[in-house]
Nucleic acid binder design. Structure first.
Lengths: 249, 249
DNA sequence: AGACTGTATTGACGTGGATCAAAACGGCAC
DNA sequence: GTGCCGTTTTGATCCACGTCAATACAGTCT
């Protein structure tokens, strides 16, 4: 299983590392939650290899054969779908501890593109082996089901956002969501760097980049958020939340 | 396990039936795909009970404890999510052979409402038992993963629709999607009854009911579709598809 | 340092779909 | 049948966001 230590053809080097889930600080966020020491070791074996990606590198592309899931170990990703006519929809942003690639299970090929938005590292989880192991470890099976289900619930939230919210509500919801996810990972809830461009935010939120920019400016004017390019500081989280619960008109 | 044959308190009668998946005509669409005779029988035991619902009855509601998945056996459902301020987003329409309730796995409670849009019947699939059985039958485990993943891919499509398409494109995509799903079930691809109102279509597509109505009228005028209330006849499927691939402008 | 390029901000204007309103239609109860 | 009510259609108006365009800013290369 160990990979050739031959001349690295591309920057996408594949590294074999022998400490995986058991040593991983993301434990609770990932597949290994609640696994016993013994089972954890078996998961370690499964998730033996990692892959580093540079900013803007693709982890996989739509129509690539599906072979593995990927757990983000460090860094930041986006997933997007392209229509034939060139329209792009960003379907999600993934950070540390989140799992990528589950869309590929149903058709044995990936149905979207996954791109690193900064230099990143993922754990490779060969899917056939994951199924095999979760066939043996019930807790792992259940964890995996929960991870997939969580993704379904997340998608519901995005549909709600795209279907019923106006521009500033969408951006507020987006910022609060990021804040919450950063908090879970031990980072500041109120101050962070956006890894994506205004255009990518807009695509995710179903808005044009100019609208995103204007909404940021307006948040700045009203003292909700301090915005300086990609650097964000939330000044009034309650105010942002209040935006969400307001009736139309 | 058998239910009281006592005076039916409510129209939501629970019926014990002993032919389940093995006799079910929906085989290929559902969880049982590719299972051998022996394994099929074990799935039969699991999916032993059904539940009938009248039009407008809830199958489950948001925050109900999650205990089972439901396979639509006959009828038609919608799922929706409500915001505190009363805004509603229809997140999907489910027909024969489709599985409901997977959103509940992650939080042990349902995250949306499921309502029958016509008199319907579902197969009850107790989730703990499904996990138990799919722990033993690898093909079942894999089928279930595929079903969940298919749902993720479907959600991607809805996001694309809500994020990048204009009103008539959304409606065209919606009609073509229904057409395709009816076809899979052996019904006409070009002629069908809509089970939902304009308002529900609009909620699903992120549009107001008036906009949906106008789009239907326009399709009628341009000879793409014959519309008579809820009765739809697709006259020019290619024309509808062409709408989707057009650039904005 | 200067030049180049991708990204962000801001303004002026146009438009697709929301909103408000009224009328038509269909199904159902009586 | 008649009346009632939920749904659909259609019209008139409004406005949030898209579009087009110019400028500002930041990072990178040389």
């Amino acid at each position: 299983m160990s990979k050739l230590p031959a001349p690295a053809l591309t920057p996408l080097s594949i590294v074999t590392i022998k400490l995986a889930c058991s040593q991983c600080s993301l434990n609770e966020l990932c597949l290994s939650e609640g696994l016993s020491g013994d089972d954890l070791e078996r998961l370690d074996v499964l998730v033996g290899t990692r892959r580093k990606l540079r900013r803007n590198q693709h982890l996989y592309r739509a129509d690539d054969p599906f072979e593995a899931l990927y757990a983000v170990r460090t860094g930041f990703f986006k997933t997007d779908v392209l229509l034939e006519d060139g329209r792009e929809q960003v379907t999600g942003f993934q950070m540390t501890g989140e799992i990528l690639g589950m869309d590929g299970i149903s058709g044995d090929k990936h149905s979207c593109n996954a791109v690193a938005l900064e230099d990143s590292e993922v754990c490779i989880i060969p899917f056939a082996e994951l199924e095999h192991l979760s066939h043996e470890i019930r807790a792992l099976q259940h964890n995996f089901h929960k991870v997939m289900s969580r993704e379904l619930v997340r998608d519901q939230g995005v549909m709600m956002l795209l279907g019923t919210m106006r521009a500033e509500e969408r951006l507020a919801a987006f910022l609060l969501n990021l804040s919450q996810r950063f908090t879970l990972r031990g980072y500041s809830a109120v101050e962070f760097h956006l890894r994506m461009t205004r255009e990518e935010i807009g695509s995710y939120l179903g808005l044009k980049l100019e609208t995103v920019s204007r909404a940021f400016s307006h948040f700045q004017e009203t003292g909700l958020v301090a915005v300086q390019q990609k650097h964000i500081r939330i000044l009034d989280a309650a105010g942002l939340k209040a935006l969400l619960n307001h009736q139309r008109h």
